[in-house]
Computed example of a mutant assay.
Amino acid sequence: MALPPEAHASVHHVWMPALMEPGTYAVDPDPWGRPWRRREDMDPSEAADLGVYAPLWPLATGPRNVLVLSPGDTRGTRLLPERSGDSCLGIVAGDEPSLLCAGCGLGVGFREDDCGVWQTVRYDPGAVAPRPLGGPPPAAPVRPLPPVDPEGHWEIRWTAGAGTALARLLAASGGRPLALPTGLPTVMFGRAVERLLPAGPPSLTVGQAGPGLPDTDADIVLVPADRRTGEPWRPPGDAVAVPLPAPVWAWLTGPGETSPTPVSGTLPAQVVRDDYPHPARPGYPFRPDHRTLRRTLSRMPEVRRPWLRALYDRL
C-alpha cells in the first residue's frame, strides 16, 4: 500500500493504533530517521536530492525505502526495548535497531509504540528481502471513513489527508482565490483558503471527480488516491487533480451514513441503545493538519516560486 498521509501527522499525548492495516505494508520513498539535520544548514542542491525545497525541521537523512508494516505482521524477530530513543511512555527508534533477527541476531529494524506515535515496525530495506507468495494480491476494498472518530473528534485521517490536499490546492491556485464546493469540502478547506489566499471574486473553481461521478467543468478537482500507489485518479480534460485518501473521498462523495433506526416501528421494550450515532460535527472547527501541510509543501518543487514560498514562510 502507499504510505498513508497520517504517518507524518502531528498527534498529541494519546495512545495510537497501528498505522498499517493487517496484511499490508508500505515502502516509504523519503529518507527516514537519524541522522537529523536542519534544512537551513544544508546546501540547496543537497536538500533537493533529499526531496526538500524549503526550510523544514527536523529533516530526516536516514535510509530511503524503509518498509513499514503493522507490528502484528512480524515474525521471527526479538525486541530490545533498551535500544529505544528518547521516548515518553513507550519506545521509539533510537541509534541502533531495536528489532533483531531471532535466528542470527542481525539488527533488522525498529519498533515504535509511544504516546502520539503510530504503532509501526520499520524494516531496514538492506536487512530483509521480499518473497512473493504467488498469485495476484487481493483487491483492497475501499470503505468510506466518517469524518468524526469514536470519541467525537475530527478523524485524524481526515485532517492529515486535508493537510496534504490543501498543499496541492494552494499550489494549483497560483495564488488566486478559489471557489469551493458547498458542504464538507468547504468545512475542510474554507477557513484555510480564506486565510492564505487573497480575498476577492474566485478565479478558479474546485469540484469533485472520480469513478462514478458525472463530469465537471471545475478547474481543480478532488479525486481519490490509489491505495496501492498513492497516485491520483486522472480526470478527463485539463482539470488539476488533487488527491484525497480513498476512504475520505468515498465518504465525501457518497450518500453518507444511514440511520441504524428501523424504517418503521420502535425498538423493543427494555432495549437500551449502545450504537448512538456520532455528532455530525465536533464542537470546534476543522483544521487541516499543520505538519502534513508544511511537509507536503516543502517537498513540492513549486514551493520555490516566490509567492508560494512567501505563503510557506507565513505558515
Rank of each mutant, 00 (worst) to 15 (best):
S98E: 04
S98Q: 08
L99M: 12
L100T: 13
L100P: 11
G103K: 03
G107L: 14
G107Q: 15
G109A: 06
F110V: 08
R111A: 11
R111M: 12
W118A: 10
V121Q: 07
V121D: 11
V121W: 05
R122H: 08
Y123R: 10
P125H: 02
R131L: 04
L133Q: 05
P138G: 04
A139S: 05
P141R: 04
V142S: 02
R143N: 12
L145V: 06
P146C: 14
P147Q: 10
E151A: 00
H153S: 07
I156A: 05
R157T: 03
T159S: 09
A162S: 11
G163Y: 00
T164S: 05
A165H: 10
A165S: 06
L166Y: 12
A167E: 03
L170D: 06
L170C: 07
A172C: 09
G174N: 15
G175R: 05
G175D: 06
P177F: 11
L180D: 05
T182M: 13
P185W: 00
A192N: 03
V193Q: 10
L196A: 15
L197K: 10
P198K: 02
P198E: 06
A199T: 13
A199H: 15
A199M: 13
P201C: 09
P202F: 13
P202R: 14
L204I: 03
V206T: 03
A209T: 09
A209W: 13
G210F: 14
D217H: 11
L222N: 07
